[in-house]
């Protein structure tokens, strides 16, 4: 077995020469995760805002369910999506199993509750501050949700980034529904898992470095967003 130093050198070499396999895997990872996060935001932001801003029967139950779903074990989500999409499952005819679409579905299910629950928290706090002004102006329900989402935009951007961070690093669900098929459904995390078990540590480590860099970038972005929001008193 090579020394750690030479593995590391080779890993950085792969990144530096812009290795086509590496790029393909990173590209698919980002495509799947970004799509899932966007869909999760489209569902989770209005849902979280509605639960945060309105009193309706069953509101507490929805909030509790959202919080519980936040901690969904990824492998369980993977298994459920697998059962739905497998040939004998209800969505079997769509033939989505082992496609990027299946991974997007699994990640969306994982990330939506996170986005919705965090959005609810943010919007609830803001709504408490705005509620009387809204009532005084006679703001309707749709305008309320719109205004709250807009005024919480900086916090919500960090919520979306948190969802992205969770999804991009997730392995359990995507490996079950994606199958880690070369050139089809291999993403960073599943490749790391597979290549490590095969002893191909250079590619695994190169992807690990990229994943780490993405995590650092997301955190830096969150801090930058916060800082600019505070500067503009929009936090």
């Amino acid at each position: 077995m090579d020394s750690f130093g030479s593995i590391l050198t080779e890993a950085f070499g792969l990144i530096l020469i812009w290795d086509p396999d590496l790029i393909e895997i990173i590209g698919l990872s980002l495509r799947v995760t970004l799509t899932a996060v966007i869909v999760a935001c489209v569902i989770g932001l209005p849902l979280g805002a509605a639960v945060g801003a309105f009193r309706f029967p069953g509101r507490t139950i929805v909030a509790v369910v959202l919080n519980a779903l936040m901690g969904l074990p990824p492998v369980v989500v993977g298994l459920m999506v697998y059962l739905m999409l497998s040939a004998s499952g209800p969505l079997g005819p769509l033939q989505l199993l082992y496609t990027p679409m299946a991974m997007i579905i699994a990640q969306t299910i994982l990330v939506t509750p996170i986005i919705a629950a965090l959005t609810k928290q943010v919007v609830e706090d803001l709504h408490r501050e705005y509620v009387e002004q809204f009532a005084s102006l006679g703001v309707g329900p749709l305008d309320r949700v719109g205004a709250l989402l807009w005024d919480a935009r900086y916090s919500l951007l960090t919520v979306a980034l948190a969802g992205f961070g969770r999804a991009v690093a997730e392995v359990g669900a995507v490996i079950i529904v994606g199958g880690n098929i070369n050139h089809v459904t291999r993403v960073m995390t599943t490749t790391i898992a597979l290549e490590t078990s095969k002893g191909n540590l250079e590619l695994a480590l190169a992807l690990g470095v990229v994943l780490l860099a993405i995590a650092l970038f997301v955190n830096a972005a969150v801090m930058a967003v916060r800082a600019s929001a505070v500067r503009a008193a929009y936090a």
Binding site: E129, E132, S136, A233, Y234
Partner: peptide, 19 residues
């Protein structure tokens, strides 16, 4: 509600939107 729209209120602590 319609009547309230004919009224306006300035609160003890003004509420400013984050805009």
């Amino acid at each position: 509600k319609a009547a309230r729209r004919r009224q306006a209120m300035v609160f003890q602590r003004p509420v400013m939107l984050r805009r």
